[in-house]
Amino acid sequence: MTKPLEVKQEVPVVTRTTSNSYSLKESATVKWSLITISFLYISLFLILPLISIFVTAFEKGWETYVASIVHPDALAAIKLTITVALIVVPLNAIFGIVAAWLITKFSFKGKNLLITLIDLPFAVSPVIAGLIFILLFGAQGLFGEWLFEHDIKIVFALPGIILATLFVTFPFIARELIPLMQTQGVTEEEASISLGASGLKTFLYVTLPNIKWGLLYGLILCNARAIGEFGAVSVVSGHIRGLTNTMPLHIEILYNEYQFTAAFAVASIMSVLAIITIIIKNIVSWKAKDV
């Protein structure tokens, strides 16, 4: 890069002044102070809590850890959580795709209102999200009597948990897809339809490949929230051990009974899931950038 220097009279040789002053960049002191503060902040609020979960979980050794997890109540909670996620995520995914198609491929009155309504659950406290299903299906609720007469249980049972989780995670996938499909426009779909493809074929062969990373991104976020939802589920579950306790609720019970090690053991599993979520999310956004 640097060629042999010929010495010319009077010409001072300046070696590499990438930025000759601090009017364009911060001084090294400012830079490293900001980095240090950010690092400390992240450590204090994010890294340390994460580490503490694993340390506390293994405090009493491997055996206690395993025992806490294979406890029937814990296994039931894990099973319930997986069931809920397996039902909720696909339902919201279908809705997200349909709503995004509607909003980005057609123009109609009230579109902005519709987008706002889809976002609504984000502005509602999870506790209120639980409350509304109690008001609808609880013993004193709108359909309470009818449900009781027909011996159908929604609240304090699996359907209630699913409904509350559906509500809380409602916007995730639609919200990820709408801006993405908006920027992609309609030309490719129009081309496909004009070449004779059906709507479904057009979606499968033209739209889906374009949105797959955004969809995956939304699925991951939706899944993480569905697994971890606490407030809403807590209201509608009824806390019946081994039956209507999801993992987060199980953690709460253990914690309130001062079974800290067991609580943190279950928490550590959820933390591992969270870390996997982050890793996949990063890979996905990295892939999405490449495309």
């Binding site: 010409v11 300046v14 070696t15 002044t17 930025s19 002053s21």
Partner: peptide, 10 residues
């Protein structure tokens, strides 16, 4: 303009 530094010269 001084927006870019230089490697050699003045």
């Amino acid at each position: 303009a001084g927006l870019e530094g230089l490697d050699e010269g003045a």
